[in-house]
Design a protein around this nucleic acid. Structure first.
Lengths: 259, 259
DNA sequence: ATAAAGGCTGACGTGACGTCAGGGTCAAGC
DNA sequence: GCTTGACCCTGACGTCACGTCAGCCTTTAT
């Protein structure tokens, strides 16, 4: 059974360009129709392509894949193990980034119950300690004191920067949200404001409320109540992942995207 | 305090190229010495650079970073949330890869304890067409939950491929090349055979030999020796990319295209 | 016979820089 | 004053794994 470029591409779920690229690189071998230069791939090439995609999936660069296709079992396992530890390292880095974002976002939560000084101190200490406990030893062993000190310094500095920024939020965000709730003006700026607020805990105010949500929840429901009657006015859903704000429409009983 | 390019670079732990790149992109602003065009960065730019690197560390592309530097606090937090879920997705993918590698290594290690005959049995039973019918559809799908099965299949598949190649050599190509070497008939079919053989390791035979070559080498040199005298008879060069077979001409000391 | 569909080969684009090459500038030592 | 070496600058090309044309030829369907 012979496949043409497009067929093999469809079979493997990759683009034709990818097939031709692999063939050019020597990873796949095609027979050519002498008449029109069309490529024809045999069944063996289907397996080969599978093999290639398998290695690519693991994040190996093409150059490595080439070697893998010729390597002995032993070499293959060795490379896989190497790749494993590389991926593990990447995962640790991702965890660190997630922490960084969470810390940055969560910072707003405990905000209100502390004085500015306390907040800053707590943030500073917590972050540093966490980082130290988690990664301090490893990093120190690997890179030495200086780099760690420098990293810590940068962290504090960064925290300070972020803190300053959130101070700005502190000063006017709540006011803005109050305005949003009153005017029901949920266009661009307001929508964004709501999305920010959506990360807060349950809160009561005269004229609005919103459900609790963690930073990692992808969809948040926000309910707006009338100032006096305490009656539900509107329900919104914010999809953080796709940055879509939708409003509940009573008529159709569905959520309709806002703006 | 003003920093020069190299100083700022050292301070932030990035390359000079990075600094200049950011300045070109408008992310950093430098004053220039009118005499020599040297860049000078103020302390505000140090903060800015830190901010940039913070966002870059979170994996945001430069285009996003640009927006972030101008965005309101609300928009910044919203973006951070989006980025968080993106990073989480990446982490899930990494976990999947790690699992995939682990399973593969486990399989491979178990595989090593199998005798060659057992291996042979494993793929002998399943013909290629069967494999294709069985797994052809699955190929189209993204690697999902049946990742392990597929990985295992691929290992068998690879073993099968190796075996088939070996079989092909023994049964057909080797003899073909022998014929080629004897008759010196290097027309199309022969050329193809040679090109296939060129992908194999060094081998000795009575009447031919060929140099080692990787599949991605574009030009392969093939040397043919006399059966008895072991004397070099001809040297060929096969250009895979352009599918040109050339023969070394002693008279002109050049390679001349065959056919 | 014509049009649509599909194949081919270049060749440029992507992102965030790394890495020259070629040339000007500056401080120090002779 | 001159050389040396350490800096600085600006293009411009290289990286990686393809995506995306553009231009042209062939096959297939109507």
């Amino acid at each position: 059974m012979n496949y043409r470029t497009s067929e093999l591409a469809k079979l493997a779920g990759v683009s034709q360009r990818t097939i031709r690229f692999y063939e050019n690189e020597g990873l796949l071998v095609a027979q050519r129709d002498p008449q029109n230069q069309y490529r024809y791939f045999g069944t063996d090439q289907v397996d080969r392509l599978q093999q290639i995609l398998f290695y690519r999936q693991l994040g190996l660069p093409i150059s490595q894949v080439k070697k893998m296709m010729l390597a002995s079992d032993y070499e293959i396992v060795a490379t896989l193990q190497q790749q494993r530890s590389a991926l593990e390292q990447q995962r640790a880095q991702l965890d660190q980034m997630l922490q960084l974002i969470d810390d940055t976002i969560r910072y707003q939560k405990g905000d209100l119950e502390m004085t500015d000084e306390e907040k800053f101190q707590a943030f500073k200490e917590a972050s540093l300690q966490e980082n130290e406990e988690k990664y301090g030893e490893e990093i120190r062993e690997q890179y030495g004191e200086e780099v760690v000190e420098k990293a810590n310094h940068q962290w504090i500095s960064q925290a300070s920067n972020n803190f300053k920024r959130f101070q700005a939020i502190e000063n006017d965000l709540f006011k803005q949200l109050a305005i949003v709730a009153q005017t029901h003006d949920l266009e661009s700026d307001a929508a964004t404001a709501v999305s920010v607020m959506a990360n807060k805990e349950d809160r009561d105010a005269d004229d609005y409320t919103y459900v609790e949500s963690e930073p990692w929840d992808n969809v948040t429901e926000i309910k707006l109540y009338d100032e006096d009657s305490d009656k539900l006015v509107d329900t919104y859903r914010y999809d953080k992942k796709n940055d879509i704000l939708a409003k509940y429409d009573d008529a159709t009983s569905k959520f309709v995207e806002v703006k």
